[in-house]
Design a protein around this nucleic acid. Sequence first.
DNA 1: TATTGTTATACTCTATAACTATA
DNA 2: TATAGTTATAGAGTATAACAATA
Lengths: 145, 145
Amino acid sequence: MAQATTRDTPAAEAWGLLQRLMVGQKARVHAIASEFDLAPAQVHALHVLEPGCPCAMSKLAQALRCDNSNVTGIVDRLEARGLVERRPGERDRRVKMLAVTPAGEAVRERLAERLREPPEALAGLDEADARTLRDILARALGDEV
Amino acid sequence: MAQATTRDTPAAEAWGLLQRLMVGQKARVHAIASEFDLAPAQVHALHVLEPGCPCAMSKLAQALRCDNSNVTGIVDRLEARGLVERRPGERDRRVKMLAVTPAGEAVRERLAERLREPPEALAGLDEADARTLRDILARALGDEV
DNA sequence: TATTGTTATACTCTATAACTATA
DNA sequence: TATAGTTATAGAGTATAACAATA
């Protein structure tokens, strides 16, 4: 692996460490998805869709950062599993609104519970570090706590 | 214990923020890979392979956290581009050692340069936060700096 | 017999372009 | 004409299982 140069800025070094952390999490996230017999993109979609807040296909594509045409397939598979539903848009009949079904809501909640568990590396931080980390990340993401 | 949506541990909250950050970076990383006409997994492989340190296929599979059989295809494509080379193992002739070619080394370096740039969210942190973030992450990853 | 890498197979994700049905 | 979603197509990643060469 490429080692972080000591010449990098602190932000760049932090970024390098974050990349390492995320690579390490890839297998875990995939394993959790597998527990539910879902592919990662399907998990992501189910997470983005909020129960009670129907969402247009194009909006989902935007959230998933992929092309509209991909969403067709991803939603096909979720719908085949009975986790989401396509409903005709009311004002504009070209649009299809996605609604999470009760079954989907249950899966979504159990999934969220598993994914919310921080990885070992973070769980092992002491309380003060964890709080500081959270606060800095909140600032970085513009989440004025 | 089903939902602790508002009152998670600091570590879990930090993890949630990190997940948001990484989702936001997906498009950027993919765009950088595209600049070099490489798929993300190819970039990842090229990053893992260190010039001058030949690496067995199975070792690469381990680093990429995927099956050996995938690596065959990924390396096929990198080799077709002249970026890496398969060489027979010396002690064990079942093993194939991967070596980064000079061309691969050049691409790898330019790529690393682009990927090392921290995302806006991190670059925007003040010096003190950035250093603290780096230090906490180093502790989390067991990198006793 | 066990292991390394390959091949065969099948599925998912991905983007582009052409198409449909609405607007 | 323009837009939302689909279909067609093609390429890449992924896992499993069967296989060859080697140990």
